[in-house]
């Protein structure tokens, strides 16, 4: 990461702003006389960032350390962490092969299954973007409509889907009138996988499309014109010029989408009405939340940290790829 260079570059310019003698403005190291100014800027700088720093210390750093320690304690979330009995590595054993392994890895599998929507979203989004990138009437309206589900409260939206796909719900009724037997949309594994993914696609295509529209602005017009003159078909242009030019967008959408997907909770939780009925929609975050309800915060922490490590790895890969791509330019 090269923030340092940027930061210090712009920093040195502001370093000696209100010098009484403008002669010394260009100097990089301030003359001792201006020590007071430097100190003032130090003070002001820290004053401005102090709320953030305090906030991070109290509301992120402390909980972070606590969750690390909690993995080894039978913490109920009511008493203090160190008032709880230590359990050593038994939560790890429980998740890796022990009594909790079925539920945890099941929730892990569910989380991955709910990521199937990602490529689907991206493909549909790409075609929508190609359509909405045209110079024609109503494009702005289309953009609004396709993006609309994305900003709606997930609770309200998931309740609608719950009712559409209930055992005796609208979809099954509709299928019934066509002579098709009802499906278990919300009570079988395959049904849940399908319904949740469908909900996520519906909610997510608009965003993908908007991102691709932005990406399309960087596709070179001359290249496409030249390809057309050479007699390339629309499909060829799409495959050989447009999509390669969109690789950064595709990569960005996939990585951020994957991060979001791995931390999914709301959609399946509300759609399936909590975990009272069954666990077939439990995600990893759902597992964490469920064990919060069961007063097993230590177990929940182990589950959360496994996910966190995977997320860290993906972030590292993302940074590596980005760095590499930049070097290639």
């Amino acid at each position: 990461m090269d923030y340092q260079t940027e930061v210090s570059l712009s920093g040195t310019e502001t370093a000696a702003p209100q010098a009484e003698e403008p002669v010394s403005v260009k100097k990089k190291t301030p003359v001792p006389k201006k020590g007071g100014l430097r100190r003032q800027e130090n003070l002001i700088g820290w004053a401005y960032i102090s709320p953030m720093v305090i906030g991070i210390l109290v509301f992120t750093a402390i909980p972070l350390v606590m969750s690390l320690i909690a993995m080894f304690y039978a913490w109920d979330g009511i008493h203090g962490l160190f008032e709880s009995p230590g359990v050593g590595g038994s939560y790890f054993k429980a998740i890796f092969g022990g009594i909790e392994s079925v539920r945890y890895w099941r929730s892990f599998a569910n989380t991955l299954i709910f990521a199937i929507q990602l490529p689907v979203c991206m493909i549909i989004g790409l075609f929508l973007a190609l359509g909405m990138n045209r110079n024609m009437r109503g494009v702005q309206t289309f953009r609004v409509i396709y993006y609309l589900p994305g900003i709606m409260s997930i609770v309200a939206v998931a309740i609608v889907w719950q009712n559409l796909f209930k055992a005796d719900g609208t979809v099954n009724n509709l299928l019934g009138s066509l002579g098709i037997p009802p499906a278990k949309w919300l009570s079988s594994n395959a049904g849940v996988a399908f319904t949740v993914n469908l909900l996520l696609v519906w909610k997510g295509v608009g965003y993908s499309a908007l991102m691709f529209i932005a990406g399309l602005q960087s596709v070179s017009t001359e290249q496409i014109e030249a390809a057309k003159i050479d007699g390339a078909s629309g499909w060829m242009i799409l495959r050989k010029i447009t999509v390669p030019a969109l690789y950064p967008t595709i990569f960005y959408l996939f990585v951020t989408g994957l991060m979001g997907s791995l931390q999914m909770f709301n959609e399946p939780y509300i759609l399936l009405g909590g975990y009272g009925i069954g666990e077939n929609g439990m995600t990893v975050v759902g597992f964490v939340y469920y064990n919060f309800g069961e007063s097993k915060l230590g177990l929940a922490s182990v589950g959360a940290w496994i996910l966190a490590i995977i997320i860290f790895i993906i972030t590292a890969i993302q940074m590596f790829v980005d760095r590499k791509r930049q070097e290639d330019y």
Partner: peptide, 17 residues
């Protein structure tokens, strides 16, 4: 760096806090 930390890791200690 703190942006990378998933909410699910810190949310339960936060609730206690």
């Amino acid at each position: 760096g703190t942006m990378m930390i998933p909410f699910s890791v810190i949310m339960l200690p936060q609730a206690w806090l």
